[in-house]
Design a protein around this nucleic acid. Structure first.
Length: 484
RNA sequence: GGCGAAGUGGCCGAGUGGUCAGGCAGAGGUCUGCAAAACCUUGUACAGCGGUUCGAAUCCGCUCUUCGCCUCCA
């Protein structure tokens, strides 16, 4: 069995083979930190978290880079427009660095709650200005870029194949009907900025050979990905809306500089929509994660996202999220039930399920199908537990191991402790378990005496405390309800 | 206008030629002191019209509709 990844560049599924055996270099476009993260960020970073997790589960050593864009990109690519981070700094009456730091922390808070593993390196654009300048110099030297009035532009005509990712290869057609703005310093309209001269009011600016200014908005990803991963990377991911111009520009400037293929597998996740319309900050329809977490368990959101494919649009609605909540509940119940089961005699074979799970993940990370396999296993093991023979201890352990490797390690569901926090959490969990056990024994006693008033009171008050109990064939099971 | 996706049962959402996706919701049943859970049973789905084929949700053509990108965006 081998992994197939849909490569946006070739528009087809390709067998995945990293450049170096056993090692995967991976770069994903990170957020611009000028506001709290929304559901769209969640979809993107959950999607690539799955990629990283599955590659690691498959035995690869993955070096995962995700940048933080903390230099304000302009609101457009022309010579005018505002720097978004500076704009936010004005709004909040502080300076850009504080904005960037504040929203970076906010971003990781939210991503942590979604069970997203932190990248190995999270380089900030402002910390890599020298690398960006060096790349620009390299491009000027090789004739792919030109300086003009303190600005530096990439000459699109100098690079054969510009637009090959998005399919926008005919630059003359793109420009037809447009006239080169006489005030622009560009030679061609489709040329894009590598370095911009800053005006007086600009707060974030650096020295360079051309002017006191700031880097163009495509430059950081090329500079930082190549610094940490080399001139050819295995996987580059990002949102679909970044295919053009961002990723096409990245390809052009990187390949023009190195003469080597920049990225071997391009991956793009699709958008979150609300009522069929793309969610976006500028559209004012974005669902803030911090607000959503007040109502919904973050792992339910993760589950909701994974129930559709990363290349499909995901339409957000209250009812859809609630359906996911109930569904995830069901898987949790099953796992719990297997945990507390009374050993029986029947066997249970996980291997067909494990095969199908791996098959789904190997098929371009088809998480909806992988989750369907979990539900099918859930049904099968429940049926086995309901049967007269029950399930033998060994088999139950296998099922739990299966859940651990699939639902927990690969999909990051059913538990949101990271590896550091896990042991500690486990200990307090065990303590809680002992306390609940005492209460459950008291309740069992009451039930034996047909004192249902008392037994129901214990059950009701436990629910109020966030502990739900169920009388199953195997005895009483309990589970912690998320504070949703 | 150019480039690119997509239209699946009440809702969400997989599926690329022939056997079942899966979840949620609904209906009936089993179990249970009650509750919850679980299990069983239950659905004439594939935008429309043509075509290819022994056979199409799946391939081809046309039509309609929706969405993304072409300014920043996960």
């Amino acid at each position: 069995m081998s992994l197939f990844i849909y490569n946006s560049l070739s528009r087809s599924k390709e067998r995945f083979e990293p450049l170096l055996p056993g090692m995967v270099s991976m770069y994903v476009c990170g957020p611009t930190v000028y506001g709290h993260a929304h559901l769209g960020h969640a979809k993107s970073y959950v999607s690539f978290d799955i990629v990283v997790r599955w590659l690691r589960q498959s035995g690869y050593r993955v070096k995962y880079i995700q940048n933080i864009t903390d230099v304000g990109h302009l609101t457009d690519d022309a010579d005018e427009g505002e720097d978004k981070i500076t704009k936010q700094a004005h709004l909040e009456k502080t300076d850009p660095m504080e904005i960037a730091q504040f929203y970076t922390r906010s971003f990781y808070e939210d991503m942590d709650r979604l069970g997203i593993l932190r990248p190995n390196i999270a380089p900030a654009a402002t910390a890599h200005i020298p690398e960006q300048i060096a790349l620009v110099e390299r491009l000027i030297k090789s004739g792919h870029a030109y300086e003009s009035n303190g600005n530096v532009y990439f000459s699109v005509k100098s690079f054969n194949g510009y637009g090959k990712l998005s399919g926008r290869t005919d630059q003359d057609a793109l420009q037809s009907g447009l006239r080169v703005d006489v005030r622009s310093d560009k030679k061609e309209l489709s040329d894009f900025a590598l370095w911009k001269k800053a005006d007086e009011r600009h707060l974030m600016k650096w020295n360079s050979p051309w002017s006191i200014g700031y880097p163009g908005w495509h430059l950081e990803c090329s500079a930082m990905s190549m610094k940490y991963l080399g001139e050819s990377l295995d996987i580059h991911g990002g949102g679909m809306e970044n295919k053009f111009p961002h990723h096409d520009c990245e390809i052009a400037q990187s390949e023009a500089a190195t003469g080597k293929p920049y990225v071997r597998y391009w991956m793009h996740n699709n958008m979150v929509t609300i009522n069929g319309i793309k969610m976006g900050k500028s559209l004012k329809n974005s669902v803030n994660l911090k607000d959503l977490f007040l109502e919904i368990d973050p792992l339910v959101i993760r589950f909701f996202i994974l129930q559709s494919h990363y290349r499909s649009q995901l339409d957000y609605s209250e009812t859809a999220i609630r359906a996911s909540q109930t569904g995830l509940e069901k898987l949790r119940e099953t796992q719990n039930r297997v945990r507390v089961q009374k050993p029986g005699k029947g066997g249970f074979d996980c291997t067909p399920f494990a095969h199908r799970f791996a098959e789904a993940m190997d098929d371009d990370f088809n998480t909806p199908v992988a989750i369907a396999v979990l539900f099918e296993l859930s049904k099968a093991i429940n049926t086995a537990l309901d049967s007269a023979e029950g399930v033998a201890e060994n088999s139950a352990k296998e099922v739990l191991a299966f859940f651990e490797s699939t639902a927990m390690r690969t999909l990051g569901l059913l538990n949101h402790y990271n590896s550091d926090g896990y042991t500690e959490a486990k200990e307090s969990w065990q303590k809680l378990g002992k306390v609940i056990h005492i209460l459950l024994e008291m309740r069992a006693e009451a039930r034996k005496n047909k004192d249902f008033a008392l037994s129901d009171k214990i059950r009701d008050q436990l629910i109020e405390a966030g502990i739900e109990i169920k009388d199953t064939k195997e005895g009483v099971s309990w589970s912690s309800k998320e504070s949703s």
